[in-house]
Design a protein around this nucleic acid. Sequence first.
DNA 1: AAGTCGGGGGC
DNA 2: GCCCCAGACTT
Length: 337
Amino acid sequence: MNPVSDVLPSNSEAQVIRAKLHAWFLSHGRDLPWRRLPSPYAVLVSEFMLQQTQVATVIPYFERWMLRFPTVEALANAAESDVLQHWQGLGYYSRARNLHAAAKVVVAQFGAELPSDPALLIKLPGVGAYTAGAIASFAFDRPAAAVDANIARVLARLGDLRLAVDSTAGAAALWEHARGLLPEVSGGREHTSALMELGALVCTSKRPQCLVCPIHEHCHTREPETLPFKAPRKGSVRLDEDAAWIVKNGALLLEQQTGRRAGGLWKLPPLQTRPDTEPVFQTVYPFTHHRITLRVFEENPIGSAAPNQRWFPLPEVLEGAALTAPHRRALESLLAR
DNA sequence: AAGTCGGGGGC
DNA sequence: GCCCCAGACTT
């Protein structure tokens, strides 16, 4: 017996599923800022912000972003420091740089109009298979497949897919399933929104609400809470980070980071060796499979600032520099002493 | 195919 | 504590 039972609906059953999803979405879909007037640019921004980030976290960032960079031209013409400033705290900063770069490509190569074809969208920096399909669906109402974590969970349960959804084979099965459910010519916006919303509100990761699911009778899994399968994760690694609090003439010394990770953002200057004093601030923050203990030590100003360092006047530093969230928390705490 | 991303919420 | 999240990218 094949342990992998991925059941795909027939064309006629797919049509029934679409109709039920559609009716459910009309009465239960949430009112989200990027759904109100889905300009292609607003969809682009929201999709970048929503990569690996939950809806509730994104909303205030999205609102501020659209006020500061209301059009794709405004974003393309902005300075990177300004872009990072408005992204700070959201994490995964390569998304901000990719969004900035994508805006420049849209202006330079597409006359400031986003293309509607997923095959063109996927060429933009930071746009993968999911985001290309999502923009085509949400911004242009095209019947384009898009499989995010919500839809992967819904489809894995619907078809009782017993492959890891983050494996190559599992992903291929999910995308095939998603394409099989698509409407034929248009209607991608509500179809993809409904599937995603079902995953967010009903077919949830924990304690799925199968009794109120509009497509319950089409679902082939008998143990939804065990799906989807995922590859096992690595254990977390503990690391220490020691940084300096150096003030001279009412100005704080910060250092600008380089590289892909948090490049462009500022942080308290790192200390190679931990001083033999008590830290003035300490916090623990996680990221991916790491767990970092950040300690800040008060140090005396020595010599001059390095090329990648700068003195920031103390009261204004919080507005003048883009910082990662843990370093920002350290600053806020130490300024309030 | 596996590892990385330097945020945050929820239980 | 661990898992999850409107994933994409590099190696």
